[in-house]
Design a protein around this nucleic acid. Structure first.
Lengths: 148, 148
DNA sequence: TATAATTGAATTGTGCACAACTTAATTGCC
DNA sequence: GGCAATTAAGTTGTGCACAATTCAATTATA
């Protein structure tokens, strides 16, 4: 099995740089929406599932409260989201879209289109690549479960 | 082309989480070497190319001096690397391994082996995945060049 | 029903990533 | 040779990622 200590032969390095470079591509596209890449991911979840709590949001994005709390605070300063404490369980904090936050969705509709165009990739390849990434994550989780 | 605003259908999200989760896998493996993941990448380059300068190191890793300068400072505090100013061009700073930095290589030899084991992946798949990631980066660069 | 254990969110501290800027050395051009 | 443009490295400031801790609310259990 691949064990050479060369940078370019390590899948971790390829993943790491590919992720960084793709994120870099998003920056100019998201700038007009006043969103960073991570904030955009949070907004994606909220457009899908308005009223989600911090815990479930963190599960979706694989982020803990240490990352999400300040990030959501910034989205509140932008007047895109609001926090409401859940009545049934006072520990939970529910996030909901403000009118501006909802309205932003329309502007965001063509973000994926722009990105696809930049990647210049056909649908079949796109799906194949996606499945491969999902498979990598599945293997990582399998290992995690074997360890329990 | 894929344009639904759903989190899981976006290749950027899959890349982002796959990269984070793989990095997470490295953490416990690198902890005994007192290295973070990014520091490990720098060491990989140095084991390959001792005496490289900051600029070329940054090109290899796609990192700028704002990231590398403090990172290398920490590697110096760990006594793994040293800085020497180049004599031919006083702007350049060359990085070289200390004896402990060189010695660390042996301990690092089985890092890729451990990771492969955790991923539980056969060589053909590993290579296919790697090529996919390289292809994504190539497409991103193609776009960058079209823009110039 | 007390109280121990667990859970959700926030805070603190460390390190990475990057934009914008500064400084000093080198190169290009007249 | 003199001066502008470029280049390498570092600094400052912002935001993300995560470990560790705190605090309050809830749940489990003796």
């Amino acid at each position: 099995m691949k064990s050479s200590l060369t940078l370019e032969h390590q899948i971790c390095f390829q993943l790491y740089t590919a992720s960084k470079e793709l994120t870099r591509l998003y920056r100019p596209i998201l700038a007009p929406l006043n969103l960073t890449y991570s904030q955009y991911l949070v907004m994606l979840v909220l457009w899908e599932e308005d009223g989600i709590d911090m815990k479930q949001l963190g599960d979706r994005l694989t982020l803990d409260s240490g990352t999400l709390s300040p990030l959501v605070k910034r989205l509140m300063q932008l007047d895109y989201v609001e926090k409401v404490r859940a009545t049934d369980d006072e520990r939970r904090v529910l996030l909901s879209l403000t009118p501006s936050g909802s309205a932003l969705r329309e502007q965001a509709e063509d973000v994926p289109v722009k990105v696809s165009g930049m990647l210049n990739i056909d649908e079949a390849t796109y799906i194949a690549y996606m499945e491969m990434l999902i498979d990598i994550k599945a293997r990582l989780r399998d290992f995690g479960e074997r360890q329990e």
